[in-house]
Each structure stands twice: as structure tokens, then as C-alpha cells.
């Protein structure tokens, strides 16, 4: 279980959450942010910081947003467009900066 960024972040990318994440586990795609489920420590700072209420704890994600639980995982564990391997465990978003691409689910959102 971890926190999940849902659809209301798309094209907003406020990034307040990134400033308060104590472990730097929120990563920047082109249109949306993603929380690394294996690096998140469940502290909840991001949930309170998000101006669009996009960040929700996994167990209370609404039915229509469920796909984003898996999607946050796949940002790190599947091969993103233009990359040769999954990001995997990174150890902090400041290590790699903006990733610049999104998952197919987010990229295809109109």
C-alpha cells in the first residue's frame, strides 16, 4: 500500500507534493506526477499539499480512479516510451529530474 496520484493531476502538475515528500519519491512525467510505490513511506504529507486532491491513499481510491493504482506502479516497472529498461528503484526524484514521458494511460488521456 502507498499513496497514489490520480487523474486530477494530469496537465496540472502543481508539484507542491514534491517539495514536502520526505523521501523524494514523487517523479515527474510529461503531464502528470507519479508516486513510487516501493519508495513511498506512507507519511501523508503529499495528500495534504495537493491543491487538486489528486493524491489518495491506495485503499481509499475511488472506483473510477482504480486504474491509477496500477498505473503508478507501471511508471516505474514497465518500459516507458523512449527508454530501454524500467526505471525500477531510483532512490529519489532529485537523482534523475523530470522523466519527460508518461505511461500510455496518461499519455492517451484527452
Amino acid at each position: 500500500m502507498s499513496y497514489v496520484v490520480t487523474s486530477s493531476c494530469i496537465d496540472v502538475l502543481d508539484k507542491s507534493c514534491m517539495d514536502v515528500c520526505p523521501v523524494d519519491c514523487i517523479y515527474e512525467g510529461a503531464r502528470k506526477l507519479y508516486i513510487h510505490p516501493d519508495e513511498c513511506i506512507d507519511c501523508g504529507a503529499c495528500e495534504a499539499a495537493c491543491p487538486t486532491s489528486a493524491i489518495v491513499y491506495e485503499a481509499s481510491v475511488k472506483p473510477e480512479e482504480q486504474s491509477h493504482i496500477e498505473d503508478n506502479k507501471s511508471f516505474f516497472w514497465s518500459v516507458l516510451p523512449g527508454r530501454e529498461e524500467p526505471l525500477g528503484i531510483v532512490g529519489g526524484s532529485s537523482e534523475i529530474g523530470p522523466v519527460g514521458v508518461d505511461t500510455p494511460l496518461v499519455a492517451s488521456t484527452s
Binding site: D19, V20, C21, P22, C43, G44, A45, C46, A48
Partner: peptide
């Protein structure tokens, strides 16, 4: 007030 992460922006 606030959780662990709140201290990051506060410290900054």
C-alpha cells in the same frame, strides 16, 4: 502541526 514531510518546506 504537520507530518514529517511538512518540515522540508518549513526548513527551506
Amino acid at each position: 502541526q504537520g507530518v514529517i514531510g511538512t518540515n522540508r518546506t518549513d526548513a527551506a
